[in-house]
């Protein structure tokens, strides 16, 4: 009887001590990201965990959450305990400051290159052989061409698409805003369905067989080739497009309460290392480190790229002018 109770006491003591011993070594991070980065961060996480283990001896597990960029930002604002956010556009990260002060205003200055460790751009995916001879943005507004793009109100990728088309029209028409609006209006006349996210549009185009051309993330376009077979689609690169900069940040309020600031910062800094940049190139993103491009399986073509800052004066302004209620996107659907 006595030995039994001693044993029980020992067992309880052991159980109480166990998690404590483990928590000194086991760290868990949550990375809240946007839709097409699933494959990318899966690889990055493995590489970072290995590097962190070698350096500190601690085991770090990184959980991923994916979805439409805006929706993901809202989850974090509403209380999802994300240590880091890696979203499709800076405006969605800005919203973490605007709604709840989860991060400082100057978050984009904390990391190199506008806190965007990789970039991408917007290209076209067409049916094999390019039957409609689509070469550039001009071809998308021709009558009879059916264009697939997601809804800019709900999709981050779609906002890049919209702004890329807008900027192209500006350049063609001596920066005439009215003409640019007319161009985009014509383009959206050709859109038969607005999916809520980038993946939804890819499915509509690739699996439902709808539309003649899909406006897509470059990485998503090449992923579709890898996924559905290069014999089904061609990637068409327009003469110019937008430099899409998906941005990353730690979430200060969360890492400070969880005590994970150090490892979260190391995770984001890791994205800029040659090792991570190679993984980035392999997943069809454009690495910041030119040397890493050699790791890419396809050579991403050269084209004129303009940034959101030089063309639209930053995301806050672009969002207000184009996508908020009463913006140009609402206008082009006015009867």
């Amino acid at each position: 009887m006595k030995t039994k109770s001693i044993l029980a006491a020992l067992a309880i003591a052991a159980m109480a001590a166990l998690p404590q011993a483990a928590s000194a070594k086991d760290i868990s991070l949550l990375n809240v990201s946007y839709d097409p980065t699933r494959e990318l961060y899966k690889e990055i996480n493995v590489a970072f965990a290995k590097q962190w283990k070698d350096k500190t001896g601690d085991t770090v597990t990184i959980q991923q959450s994916h979805g439409g960029s805006g929706k993901q930002a809202r989850s974090v604002i509403d209380g999802l305990k994300a240590d880091v956010v890696t979203l499709a556009l800076a405006y969605d990260v800005d919203s973490l400051y605007d709604n709840g002060k989860l991060i400082p205003l100057e978050w984009q200055k904390r990391l190199p290159q506008n806190a965007a460790p990789y970039t991408s751009t917007i290209v076209f995916l067409v049916r094999k052989g390019n039957p409609w001879k689509i070469k550039d943005w001009d071809d998308l507004v021709k009558p009879g061409i059916s264009v697939i793009t997601p809804n800019p109100k709900t999709s981050g990728g779609a906002r890049w698409n919209y702004l890329a088309a807008w900027a192209y029209a500006l350049h063609k028409n001596n920066n005439d805003d009215a003409k640019a609006k007319d161009f985009v209006k014509k383009l959206f006349k050709n859109v038969p369905v607005l999916d809520t996210g980038a993946r939804g549009s890819t499915t509509t185009f690739a699996q439902r067989g709808l539309g003649d051309v899909l406006i897509a993330w470059e990485n998503e376009a090449y992923l579709s080739l890898a996924e559905f077979g290069a014999d089904k689609f061609d990637v068409i690169v327009p003469t110019e497009s937008i430099l899409a900069e998906p941005t990353v940040s730690i979430v200060d309020k969360v890492v400070d309460s969880k005590g994970t600031r150090q490892v979260a910062e190391a995770y984001l800094n890791f994205l800029y290392t040659p090792e991570a940049q190679k993984i980035i190139a392999k997943n069809f993103y454009r690495p910041r480190d030119a040397a890493a491009s050699s790791a890419a399986t396809v050579k991403l073509p050269e084209l004129t790229l303009f940034t959101i800052d030089e063309q639209f004066g930053g995301w806050r302004k672009a969002q207000k002018t184009h996508f908020d209620d009463g913006g140009t996107f609402d206008d082009i659907y006015k009867p």
Binding site: G68, G70, R74, S95, D98, K153, D325
Partner: peptide, 8 residues
């Protein structure tokens, strides 16, 4: 949903 996406 669209209004929610805009934090409205």
């Amino acid at each position: 949903i669209i209004k929610l996406e805009q934090y409205d």
